[in-house]
Amino acid sequence: MNEIRLAAILLLLAGGVFFTFVSAVGVIRLPDVYARAHTASQTDTLGAGFVVLAVVLAYGFDADVIKAVLLLVFIFVTNPTAAHAAARAAYEEGIEPWTEGDERR
């Protein structure tokens, strides 16, 4: 039982690290601000989401789990909002989205 739990925790942590890494690469590699905003929000929603789930599993059922779940809820509310605000600010500034054939910015 404990081995299964440990394996699940490691799997979740690996998922968190994977998505954080992918979005870090994306922020450097993707061509324009909208694509970058899309990938940057993965860090928090998926990356932090998996890590917090791993924390929940690691602690079992006690009071700390409630805090972790609350944390997850707040991350899921605030992070997409921040990404939306960044993309919206870029749109209000009049930045045109990148289309195929354009130069990278």
Binding site: F74, V77, T78, T81, H84, A85, R88
Partner: peptide, 9 residues
């Protein structure tokens, strides 16, 4: 979206 999220948080 921002108004709703801030209202909630």
């Amino acid at each position: 979206i921002i108004m709703t999220a801030v209202r909630m948080v």
